[in-house]
Amino acid sequence: MSRHSKDSEAILVLEDGRYFEGESFGAPGNTFGEAVFSTGMTGYQETLTDPSYRRQVVVMTAPQIGNTGWNDEDDESNRIWVSGFVVRDLSRISSSWRATGTLPDELRKQGIVAVQGIDTRALTRHLRERGAMRVGLFTGDDATRPIDELVAEVLAQPVMSGADLAGEVTTEQPYVVPAQGERRLTVAAIDLGIKSMTPQQLAARGIEVHVLPGGASFDDVLAINPDGIFFSNGPGDPATADGAVALMRAALDRRLPVFGICFGNQILGRALGFGTYKLKYGHRGINIPVRDTATGRIEITSQNHGFAVDAPIGEPTETPYGRVEVSHVCVNDDVVEGLRCLDVPAFSVQYHPEAAAGPHDADHLFDRFTALMQGAKETSNA
């Protein structure tokens, strides 16, 4: 089967053969990745610049995208990381007073293939039923090629399971985000795909943040004499992150206060002896409810992950580092959303408490990390 289209038209082809025709509004060309959907109604700029979306084609479930344009303030990193972008309707105008450009212009500037006019509701339902899968976006003349040829190209792409991607998004050189006001504490932040709002949240609490490359050694960490160590979010399969796991265990052995988010939660899970697994279609959006197992409190959270920690929910589990309990679970599907160590100063969550586009229910976790470090510092000085 073949079709004919104008130069502006495009086609989205899934690995199982289903396809959707639309119109190109980004850079010309073709792109491949894992098709995932995000339920966030705002914050598309933060989504596009989140390094955790490396090698993924993001489908937005909100029907209209682009109405606030693009600005110079909301980037979560120095570039767009998604492999491709898919929306139902592209806003014809940008109405925000903060906008310095438009979404299509920025996508074209950074070479990102994007498609509009897709039935994103049908596509999202398909991904929920069949699971996240490989996808190709084809534009121009390639959009007219036979479907079986396009499917073959999609099937030739690597899958996300087993993908080691943190090294592709981490900083090449260490850098420092100074504390705001008086410096109270120092943190080593391991960049596995860190978002810029995270060090800002720490700095706002009087913490000097030394952001280190994902391949940093424990000697690199000790060289800055930190009061704690932070493990960031990031892309790929946590089962491949042996170096980060070894670094986490070194921190736990030293009883250095630890806080991990998203990928960092999975790294802590592995360091404690738990396994990880790939979710059917993951959690991506800024409206995902999580329950604190200790208080029963529900927080609405920002999430972006396709893997999860396989840990027992309920009574604490004995690990090589003492007792550990699941601190948070997803209300929607009971996926583990956080770990709390009871005998060493370490905890983690699967979501994003920095959430630049909101919600801000989990901001207090940065205060908790600050208190954990302050307590450990006072104890060591006693």
Rank of each mutant, 00 (worst) to 15 (best):
S5V: 14
D7Q: 15
E23N: 04
F32T: 01
S38R: 07
S38K: 11
M41N: 09
M41T: 12
T47W: 14
D50L: 01
R54F: 13
V59I: 10
I65L: 08
N67D: 13
T68Q: 05
D75Y: 13
S77I: 00
W81P: 03
V82G: 04
S83G: 12
G84W: 00
D89H: 08
R92T: 14
A99V: 13
T100R: 03
E106G: 00
K109L: 08
V113S: 08
R121H: 13
R121W: 12
R128S: 15
E129M: 11
R134I: 05
G136V: 07
G140R: 13
L150V: 11
A156Q: 14
Q157I: 03
S161I: 08
L165T: 10
L165R: 11
T170S: 11
V176K: 04
Q180E: 10
G181D: 14
L185W: 13
V187W: 06
I194S: 02
L202R: 10
I207C: 03
G214E: 02
L222P: 00
I224Q: 08
G228Q: 00
I229T: 11
G234V: 04
D237T: 00
P238C: 12
A246Y: 00
A251L: 14
R255Y: 03
L256N: 12
F259Q: 00
I261D: 14
G269H: 06
R270E: 03
L272K: 00
T276D: 10
K278A: 14
K278S: 10
H283W: 08
R284D: 05
G285L: 05
P289L: 01
G296R: 00
R297A: 10
T301A: 07
Q303R: 06
P320Q: 08
P320R: 05
Y321W: 06
R323G: 07
N332I: 00
R340Y: 06
L342C: 07
V349L: 13
E354K: 05
E354N: 04
A355I: 06
A357H: 06
P359W: 04
D367I: 07
A371D: 15
L372S: 07
Q374D: 09
A376H: 05
E378L: 02
S380N: 08
N381F: 12
N381E: 11
